[in-house]
Amino acid sequence: MVQSLNTAQITPFHQKVKSPLTKQKITVLQINLGRRCNLACTHCHVEASPKRTEELSPEICEQLIEIINRFEQIETVDLTGGAPEMNYGFRPLVEAAREKGKEVIVRSNLTIFFEPGFEDLPEYFARHQLRVVASLPCYLQENVDKQRGAGVYNESIEAIKKLNQLGYGNDPNLILDLVYNPGLPVSNSFSLTPDQQKLEQDYKEYLNERFDLKFNNLFTITNLPIGRTKQYLQRRNLEKPYLQFLEENYNPVTLPQLMCRNELSIDYLGNIYDCDFNQMEGLPAKMKNGKNLTVAELLKAESLDVIEMIQTASYCYGCTAGSGSSCGGSLI
């Protein structure tokens, strides 16, 4: 669906929402373990790469384990990066969370399985019953390699085969989800992400017929104008038109399901944000007294529910356009 753009200014998101966007009970911790990655994808909002060295410290890791142990209300620990598996703290956090009976999500690029020292990851994932959310931005090789680098598609297919052999996609305790990202626009003829259910069916049919692969769910995620995507759009003078397009497609029905409502996003320094996108744009979560929130402050407060108002920006239109977008795919 392509919309014509107008030349009006972008409405501040908090004005569009009209009533304040407030937190609900926190049930999800999403932890960015660092920016080290074996890939450097063109759409990466984290701007991760093999050259990045930022990662979790032992001190912050211990604080996070204390939070996992202390707060029963946490249902899910969502580990991301970079390639989370490459950064300090990955396995200690997995094991602490699983010991407390939490669901653990690992956001994997799949190709990490073929890096020296990480060959045991598929078995490790299965042993700890991790939910794998894996980037495969298209089921066609040309589109994947264009976004993520030559050879990534073939390695991703081989990685899914390994996971399938261990029971992923079949065993109800071994969930494998794939993530679709649209290609970056080359002009101002923008379009929303495709219908998630229909595209999931297309993925399943193609991957099953071509490679005999199985997976559970497909998540469609809108490219937000932050990180490398923002830089790409700015180079082509497309950032403002793209934001206008997202605003034109704003859908208030998405608001109750936004991932920022019940999630804390934590960076490798222990700073806390309402979502991963705010983290990448340096927009910290605020306590009721206006102070920036950290993991240490949570422990001191003995509560996860210390945020009243969610911090918003113009890129929030990316999560609320059309069917909505989140780390778990479309919202409606």
Rank of each mutant, 00 (worst) to 15 (best):
42 T>I: 12
42 T>G: 01
43 H>G: 04
43 H>K: 05
43 H>R: 09
43 H>Q: 09
43 H>C: 07
44 C>A: 13
45 H>R: 06
45 H>L: 10
45 H>I: 15
46 V>Q: 08
46 V>N: 12
46 V>T: 10
46 V>L: 11
46 V>H: 06
46 V>F: 04
46 V>E: 11
47 E>W: 02
48 A>Q: 04
48 A>T: 03
49 S>G: 09
49 S>R: 00
49 S>A: 12
50 P>L: 08
50 P>T: 01
50 P>N: 04
51 K>R: 09
52 R>I: 03
52 R>M: 09
53 T>H: 11
53 T>R: 12
53 T>V: 13
53 T>Y: 01
53 T>N: 06
53 T>M: 11
54 E>M: 07
54 E>A: 13
54 E>R: 00
55 E>W: 05
55 E>S: 12
55 E>M: 15
55 E>L: 02
56 L>S: 12
57 S>R: 05
58 P>V: 10
58 P>D: 12
58 P>I: 08
59 E>R: 13
59 E>M: 08
60 I>W: 04
60 I>N: 03
60 I>D: 04
60 I>V: 15
60 I>M: 02
61 C>M: 14
61 C>N: 12
61 C>Q: 15
62 E>F: 02
62 E>S: 15
63 Q>L: 14
63 Q>I: 10
65 I>S: 02
65 I>W: 05
65 I>N: 08
66 E>C: 06
66 E>N: 06
66 E>A: 11
66 E>T: 13
67 I>Q: 05
67 I>E: 09
67 I>T: 13
67 I>L: 14
67 I>H: 07
68 I>T: 05
68 I>Q: 02
68 I>G: 00
68 I>H: 00
69 N>Q: 08
69 N>E: 13
69 N>F: 04
69 N>K: 14
69 N>A: 10
70 R>Q: 15
70 R>T: 15
70 R>S: 12
71 F>P: 03
71 F>V: 08
71 F>K: 07
71 F>L: 10
72 E>M: 07
72 E>N: 11
73 Q>A: 12
73 Q>K: 12
73 Q>H: 07
73 Q>S: 14
73 Q>V: 10
74 I>N: 06
75 E>K: 12
75 E>S: 11
75 E>M: 05
76 T>K: 05
